[in-house]
Nucleic acid binder design. Structure first.
Lengths: 180, 180
DNA sequence: CCAACCATGTAAGCTGTTACATGATTGA
DNA sequence: TCAATCATGTAACAGCTTACATGGTTGG
């Protein structure tokens, strides 16, 4: 059973949880928003939708000629939620973690979002420390200047990610306490 | 013959330009440095080396039992240089642009490095402006908070890249004027 | 009525990963 | 001598892209 889902599949599930859409509408989301770096190519999306439907995670309802509106099924909700609430792992792609953060919108337990952000921040700080240690270590210090600068770039970008998380956490907690 | 090279192939060429290495040594570079996000799996590197050798870009010289040291050939140098001096394009991966920057080390024309950095910076500023415009536009402003925050993350990280480029440019120009 | 857009689909291929397999060399 | 590391290789698969193909709908 547990057909291992691809990132693209989760992206589709997340979009369909927000509202039912056609395959074409999903493609347009990838084409017109910066969220996710997925291609809008029909060759990726339509087959992925078929797989999700066969697995019982989504259901396509005919909506006019040659057109079907996909809805997320309860089992799809469950699969999506399982994915969303995982803590950020040390080797997870930043863009995937961000996708999960965005999809946690309106989750019944707001704490899940805060937990994800917290683990995101600590992973980023840990990565930044790793890069610093590398630069100051034997191998790093012996590298040519431009290699060092390239690693320095990675460090600064990683710190920017961590700082963003700090700010986002603050913002979400403020919004929460204000609504209480 | 214009066998279109993969990013991995260019990464291998760049490392072999610095010094001849065995396939294993190349794998270890990917495994022990943060430069590049390539896998150190034998299944990718050994076949890639074979392709480069057949294309006449590198040459493997036997160095002991079941072991060969790969050297870069003049044609490989040329292919690598052509790749390195291209301006950063609007859709190029940041990590690839950084790899090219690192490999431009010791290029006979130092101006090439400055040009690459300059184009990198302007691409990053342009991307940042695009994200800002998206956030302030109709679609962006209507998105749920966490989607907006995710885009905000992209914006901050992109600005960090641009700022890094500004600093690196400064640093390289200072080093240059000092040595004159 | 015709162009532009909506809408779906498939076949071929490229790249890389995973997993497995082999054997030499080196240091404890 | 035995484990760890050096060193290379391949087969199977996964996942996505490119390119092609088809046809309905809508607005000027």
């Amino acid at each position: 059973m547990a057909t291992t889902l691809t990132h693209l599949s989760y992206a589709l599930l997340g979009l369909l949880r927000a509202e039912p859409r056609t395959g074409y509408a999903l493609r347009m989301v990838f084409e017109t928003t910066p969220l996710g770096n997925y291609s809008s190519s029909p060759g990726s999306i339509y087959p992925a939708l078929k797989v999700l439907e066969r697995a019982g995670l989504i259901e396509g309802r005919s909506a006019g000629v040659r057109k079907s509106l996909y809805h997320i099924c309860p089992e799809g909700q469950r699969a999506l939620d399982d994915w969303l609430v995982r803590p950020v792992t040390d080797d997870e792609d930043v863009s995937i973690a961000l996708l999960r953060f965005a999809f946690l919108q309106d989750h019944p337990q707001p704490q899940m979002t805060l937990d994800l952000l917290t683990s995101f921040e600590s992973v980023m700080r840990r990565r930044a420390n790793g890069l610093k240690a590398f630069l100051n270590g034997e191998v790093g210090a012996a590298m040519p200047l431009q290699s060092q600068l390239a690693v320095q770039h990675g460090l600064q970008v990683t710190l920017a990610s961590a700082d963003w998380a700090t700010g986002a956490l603050q913002q979400l907690q403020d919004a929460k306490s204000k609504s209480e």
